[in-house]
């Protein structure tokens, strides 16, 4: 018998993550405590603030937490996740517009969902593949997120507001379930 060709990936070492639980949804955002997880990318803050403003003014939500990531490329620590889960019932995060930050947004989302917090992650369309792969690695093969056109960083203030308005329906659909009991 010839020698076997060895596998360089360590496939046998790779631990398949168990399917990550998804948080239960509310029927609407009326009265919901919403947190913004801002990843520091250019225009991420005004984008999420505008999403937050619309959720408050048009949908009855309350913004109860704003957390700015220290490193957009890395998933948040367990302490931060725990704090966010205590401070908010729903999280909106983004804007994932690069290779590492969109993957980190997916990772944060999966962990927050498992902690019982529905998440709407906003990602630019260029990064669908990497977001889905990262979510799959974290045990969320059917991860859902909101997309907006790439790029976001170069948009003017008015354009950012228009973009935020255009993802609102998707954000609400991601974090609510109209058939859920109150």
């Amino acid at each position: 018998m010839p020698n076997a060709i060895l596998d360089p990936t360590g496939a046998t070492r790779v631990q398949r993550k168990a399917a990550a639980p998804r948080a239960a949804r509310r029927s609407s955002l009326a009265g919901a405590r919403v947190g913004l997880l801002i990843n520091t990318k250019q225009n991420a803050r005004p984008f999420l603030e505008e999403v937050g403003r619309i959720l408050v003014e048009d949908h009855g939500a309350v913004i109860t937490a704003r957390h700015t990531k220290l490193n957009f490329a890395a998933p948040e620590s367990q302490e931060v996740i725990k704090d966010l889960a205590a401070e908010a019932e729903v999280i909106v995060t983004g804007v994932g517009d690069c290779g590492s930050c969109c993957a980190a947004a997916a990772a944060d989302s999966v962990v927050l969902e498992a902690a019982g917090v529905p998440v709407a992650a906003i990602i630019t369309e260029s990064f669908r593949t990497t977001v889905e792969k990262m979510a799959e690695l974290r045990g969320a093969a059917d991860f859902k997120y909101a997309t907006t056109a790439h790029p976001v960083a170069v948009l003017t203030e008015e354009q950012v507001k228009a973009r935020a308005a255009s993802v609102i329906d998707d954000v609400i659909a991601l974090v609510t379930d109209p058939s859920a009991a109150e």
């Binding site: 360089p8 070492r13 790779v14 631990q15």
Partner: peptide, 17 residues
């Protein structure tokens, strides 16, 4: 950590070969 993967001396040797 972000992808949950690590590399051992053994895997490094396979890839170097």
């Amino acid at each position: 950590e972000q992808v949950g993967r690590d590399c051992t001396v053994y895997l490094a040797a396979i890839n170097a070969a």
